[in-house]
């Protein structure tokens, strides 16, 4: 009868387990899984003018990936999205790590004040952030030119948001400014979990704070850094709001700020005289899903499994 104990427990536990799982399962299925599957289903159909939707197999995917117009737009938005992601990975996350490292220094004063100020932009609405930065960088009323004038660099100022070469980078920096608080907070929390005796021992052995950070703290928070990276990837490839708020759905000049989110919006909902096409829109959405899925799988199999974890 050795087995009867756990069995009874499970039978007793069954109802609460279902009860606790049910709300999340139902809501997640209803609002996430079902729409996702239905959107993929939608991408296999097409509606001829005035007719009923008919199954067309992979035709929509062929249109987006093989038709020269659609594919050039699609790959343009894909590469713009990669640049957008690269700026976040190379600028936002290192700054987040560095700031978290500084914040966790024991002798730092006004720690909470800094922390609050750095997380502040994250709490602002994207529309407000877009509006503020448009004003700051405006060649007519912006303080950007005046600020550069103070340090004698006014000649460097330009209408950055309006130039093909600089618009996307400028928008990426605005996004970095807004979201740097998220990696900062996550990594700061992970740094706080590192026991003081590890740090103390290193200091006693003669390590500087910088060496402690590089050789002890950073390896210990690498799993968090990896998680932050994958969150950045998913967030960037789903991004839409900032570009739409600042440049509109046509993502000018000359589609230089067009990312996959804005391409999806234009395709699905239409724009001005361009009528919306739900089927092609769903195809773009499904392709976005596949790209994000590929990125996440790469992370799971190539990176996460190789990360060394330490029991603290």
């Amino acid at each position: 009868m050795a087995h009867s104990g756990p069995m009874t427990d499970w039978r007793k536990a069954k109802l609460p387990v279902i009860a606790f799982l049910a709300p999340a399962t139902i809501i997640y299925t209803l609002f996430m899984i079902y729409p996702l599957l239905d959107s993929i289903r939608l991408s296999f159909y097409a509606t001829p003018s005035g007719g009923e939707a008919a199954f067309v197999g992979l035709d929509n995917y062929r249109t987006i990936l093989a038709d020269p117009d659609w594919s050039s737009t699609f790959w343009n938005s894909f590469w713009n999205n990669m640049k957008f992601f690269a700026v976040h990975m190379l600028i936002q996350n290192p700054i987040g790590i560095a700031l978290a490292g500084i914040l966790s220094l024991p002798q730092l004063r006004f720690r909470n004040t800094y922390r609050t100020m750095m997380i502040m932009p994250t709490m602002l609405s994207v529309v407000i952030v877009g509006f503020i930065w448009q004003l700051i960088l405006s060649p007519v009323w912006g303080v950007g030119a005046d600020l550069l004038d103070i340090i004698g660099l006014k000649s460097l100022f330009g209408p950055w948001l309006g130039k093909e070469g600089s618009a996307l980078i400028t928008l990426s920096f605005i996004s970095v400014w807004q979201w740097v608080g998220i990696p900062l907070m996550l990594i700061y929390a992970a740094l706080l979990a590192i026991p003081d005796d590890l740090v103390d021992a290193a200091i006693v052995d003669g390590a500087s704070h910088f060496e402690v950070f590089i050789h002890i703290k950073l390896p210990l928070v690498l799993p968090t850094v990896a998680m932050v990276s994958i969150l950045t990837f998913v967030g960037n490839f789903n991004a839409f709001d900032l570009i739409y708020a600042v440049k509109g759905a046509l993502a000018g000049p000359n589609f230089s700020t067009d990312i996959m989110g804005t391409l999806f919006y234009r395709t699905f909902f239409g724009y001005q005289l361009q009528l919306g096409n739900p089927h092609l829109g769903a195809t773009v959405a499904s392709l976005m899903f596949l790209i994000i899925l590929a990125g996440v799988l790469f992370y799971l199999f190539a990176i996460q499994r190789r990360l060394a974890r330490y029991q603290l």
């Binding site: 007519v140 330009g158 309006g162």
Partner: peptide, 14 residues
């Protein structure tokens, strides 16, 4: 105006 590439519709109206 200077920097017209980054001047929006409300900017021009103003």
């Amino acid at each position: 105006p200077d920097g017209y590439e980054a001047i929006s519709y409300p900017d021009a109206q103003n």
